[in-house]
Amino acid sequence: MTGDEYKKYVDSKAPDSKLLRNVIRAFSVGGLICVVGQFFVNSFSRMGFDMDVSASLTSMTMIFLGVLFTGLNLYDDLGRFAGAGSIVPITGFANSIASPAMEYKSEGYVLGVGARMFLIAGPVLVYGISASIIVGILHYLLKF
């Protein structure tokens, strides 16, 4: 059997992820996280903050909650259940920074926590910021 034949054979043996179940779970949990976010936006607006400030306060609150639930050993269980539903919202981004910080604490605060904290979020920042710069330049040029 050649390597390619073997790969085809293995693919036929490997069970697929349960797509429908995962999509439903991701939709419900992701939706629920957004509802919580909306609740904070409304609450902050009702307290008299304008829309921009309310949005920033909501992001901060959601990031805090993501980190808190990571520290309480709950976010990984949520992630295992919800998949993209808990990875995509901002709480997932917070989880991706808090979890390596916890993991590498045993290697010290400088080379452990400090150096490894952005192990997973780092690439997102690099390419996210790069993309926004490119789009910004294009926007500037197209305006002329």
């Binding site: 995962n22 992630g79 295992r80 390596p100 997973i120």
Partner: peptide, 8 residues
């Protein structure tokens, strides 16, 4: 990955 990362 780190243990607490919520991945599937």
């Amino acid at each position: 990955f780190p243990l607490e990362l919520g991945a599937q």
